[in-house]
């Protein structure tokens, strides 16, 4: 469970996240969407600890981010859009290193991820040979190592091929069924709509709306618009939100 209370992130000339409160429950995949500059990345960076200066509270289960920083680091996995990996390790070594840092025995999980993401041919190559998509797969696999209770994905699936996307979706659904909390940020509305059970919309740093799938179906039936159209009109005319 992730609980965010009155989160406000200020940059010198702009308020990136403005008093956002939200609770992410176990067993649900949440989608986080919003236009560019909506504050999605800042929100996620604050969750994972990449931004330390903010107002408000962030809790992972009963642990506060400001007080129990080191404990929290063991409670979540994180995959960013542009992963910074170590170029002189192989993909296999990198995943084993992460497993050792997290102090989990992940041999069988790493083998499964290797086949799920189609990494067989490159697993023993240095990461500096990998394409962007391959790096994203390794980063995503690293976030899954040890099956952390919370998973935070920031545009992490953009470079995936269709087979890896399909396998990733199955992995996330299995994790959600087992009670993990998953937050998935993406620009691709179709992906969010198909993968997530609840969708959070941020705009100009504010929480604009929070929908369950049932509510989205209801909106579609009521307005005759698909989710993309509704999203655009909502961002342009926020008063239409729930």
């Amino acid at each position: 469970m992730i609980k965010v209370s009155n989160l406000t992130i200020r940059y010198p000339e702009v308020v990136a996240v403005d008093n956002v409160s939200i609770q992410l429950k176990e067993g649900i995949i949440y989608g986080l969407v919003g236009p560019n500059g909506a504050g999605k990345s800042s929100f996620i960076k604050a969750l994972v600890g990449l931004i330390a200066e903010y107002d408000g509270d962030i809790y992972f289960d009963e642990f506060s981010r400001s007080k129990d920083r080191h404990i929290i680091k063991s409670l979540f996995g994180y995959a960013p859009e542009d992963p910074d990996l170590y170029p002189y390790l192989t993909g296999k070594e990198y995943l084993h290193m992460i497993a050792d840092i997290r102090q989990v025995d992940a041999n069988s999980q790493i083998k499964a991820l290797q086949s799920d993401f189609g990494l067989d041919n490159v697993f023993d190559d240095l990461i500096n040979r990998y394409s962007h998509g391959m790096r994203q797969k390794i980063s995503f696999a690293a976030a899954l190592i040890g099956e952390p209770k919370n998973l935070i994905l920031d545009e992490a699936l953009n470079g995936f091929d269709p087979i890896s996307q399909y396998n990733s979706k199955n992995i996330l659904l299995t994790l959600a069924r087992n009670g993990h909390t998953i937050l998935l940020s993406s620009h691709v509305l179709e992906l969010v709509e198909n993968w997530c059970q609840e969708i959070i919309i941020l705009n100009e740093g504010k929480l604009l709306a929070e929908y369950t799938l049932e509510q989205i179906e209801d909106i579609k039936a009521r307005t005759g618009k698909d989710f993309s159209e509704h999203f655009v009109s909502l961002v342009q005319r926020p008063s239409e939100g729930l």
Binding site: Y88, L89, K92, E93, H96, I98, D100, N128
Partner: peptide, 29 residues
């Protein structure tokens, strides 16, 4: 692009567990 033969898995187990992954990462890099 040419890799040395030493890999992550060949380092002695005597290295303390807490620093082992980071130490090996540094040496390999």
């Amino acid at each position: 692009q040419n890799m040395s033969k030493l890999t992550y898995f060949q380092f002695p187990s005597a290295i303390p567990k807490t620093v082992r992954p980071l130490f090996i990462k540094e040496i390999l890099s």
